[in-house]
Amino acid sequence: MVCCVCVLLLICWPQVCHGQQVCDSPLRLQLLKAPPTRGWVKSRDLNRQSLSSWQWTKTVVKNRIPEVIYEAVCDSAYCDYPHGDWDTHESLNAVPVHQVMLVLHAERGQPRSYTAQYRRVAVGCTCMWAKMA
């Protein structure tokens, strides 16, 4: 990942030509239009089947790659215990799981220049034992 960022920065590093900033290096990204179908059908409702279920929220930002990012929001502060033991239920907290992803933001006035930034995204929820004082 670090290697990819370094290559991206070297390719799109602002060049100076006669006192003006120029970014004319091509950047090609392969963006998938749809998720892969193999194995996808079985796991697509993972957010509903989990003991710490979550909903997806959609964020759209123009001039960003990717333009659409989905984030997980836990349905409850607690996990659903399948056997109905409510004492255990309150000691298991539902917490979001985060992943850091690289996003590109288009620079204003520079049609082919991008700034790379890391963004922390919630990708699901999981159960954790509550801390006891």
Results as ranks from 00 to 15, higher is better:
Met1Gly: 04
Val2Asn: 14
Cys3Arg: 14
Cys4Lys: 13
Val5Cys: 08
Val5Trp: 03
Val5Gly: 05
Val5Met: 09
Val7Arg: 10
Leu8Tyr: 04
Leu9Val: 03
Leu9Pro: 00
Leu10Ile: 03
Cys12His: 08
Trp13Leu: 08
Pro14Gln: 02
Pro14Cys: 02
Gln15Glu: 15
Gln15Thr: 13
Val16Thr: 10
Cys17Thr: 06
Val22Asp: 03
Cys23Gly: 01
Pro26Glu: 02
Pro26Phe: 01
Leu27Arg: 02
Arg28Thr: 13
Gln30Lys: 09
Gln30Asn: 12
Leu31Ala: 15
Pro35Lys: 08
Pro36Asn: 15
Pro36Gln: 09
Thr37Val: 07
Arg38Val: 03
Gly39Ala: 08
Gly39Glu: 05
Trp40Thr: 10
Lys42His: 14
Lys42Glu: 15
Ser43Trp: 11
Asp45Asn: 11
Asp45Val: 14
Asp45Met: 15
Leu46Gly: 04
Leu46Ile: 13
Arg48Gln: 12
Gln49His: 15
Gln49Arg: 13
Ser50Glu: 11
Leu51Gln: 07
Ser53Leu: 06
Ser53Ala: 14
Trp54Thr: 03
Gln55Arg: 14
Gln55Val: 11
Trp56Lys: 10
Trp56Arg: 04
Thr57Ser: 14
Lys58Ser: 15
Lys58Asp: 04
Lys58Pro: 04
Lys58His: 05
Val61Lys: 11
Lys62Val: 09
Lys62Leu: 05
Asn63His: 15
Arg64Asp: 09
Ile65Pro: 03
Glu67His: 09
Glu67Asn: 09
Glu67Leu: 08
Glu67Pro: 00
Val68Glu: 10
Tyr70Cys: 07
Tyr70Asp: 11
Tyr70Ile: 01
Glu71Gln: 11
Glu71Arg: 12
Val73Ile: 11
Asp75Leu: 09
Ala77Ile: 10
Tyr78Cys: 09
Cys79Tyr: 01
Pro82Glu: 05
Pro82Ser: 07
Pro82His: 02
His83Asp: 10
Gly84Tyr: 08
Gly84Pro: 04
Gly84Val: 00
Trp86Glu: 12
Trp86Asp: 06
Thr88Asp: 08
Thr88Phe: 12
Glu90Arg: 14
Glu90Asn: 12
Ser91Pro: 01
Ser91Arg: 06
Ser91Tyr: 06
Leu92Asp: 06
Asn93Val: 11
Ala94His: 00
Ala94Arg: 01
His98Val: 02
His98Ser: 06
His98Pro: 12
His98Gly: 01
His98Leu: 07
Met101Cys: 07
Met101Ile: 04
Met101Trp: 03
Leu104Met: 02
His105Thr: 08
His105Trp: 07
His105Glu: 02
Ala106His: 09
Arg108Gly: 04
Gln110Leu: 05
Pro111Thr: 07
Arg112Thr: 00
Ser113Gln: 07
Ser113Asn: 06
Tyr114Arg: 01
Tyr114Gly: 07
Tyr114Leu: 10
Thr115His: 09
Thr115Arg: 13
Thr115Asp: 00
Thr115Ala: 09
Ala116Pro: 01
Ala116Trp: 00
Gln117Cys: 03
Gln117Thr: 10
Arg120Thr: 02
Arg120Glu: 10
Arg120Cys: 08
Arg120Pro: 01
Val121Gly: 08
Ala122Trp: 00
Thr126Ile: 00
Thr126Tyr: 03
Cys127Asp: 13
Cys127Asn: 15
Ala130Leu: 09
Ala130Val: 02
Ala133His: 13
Ala133Cys: 02
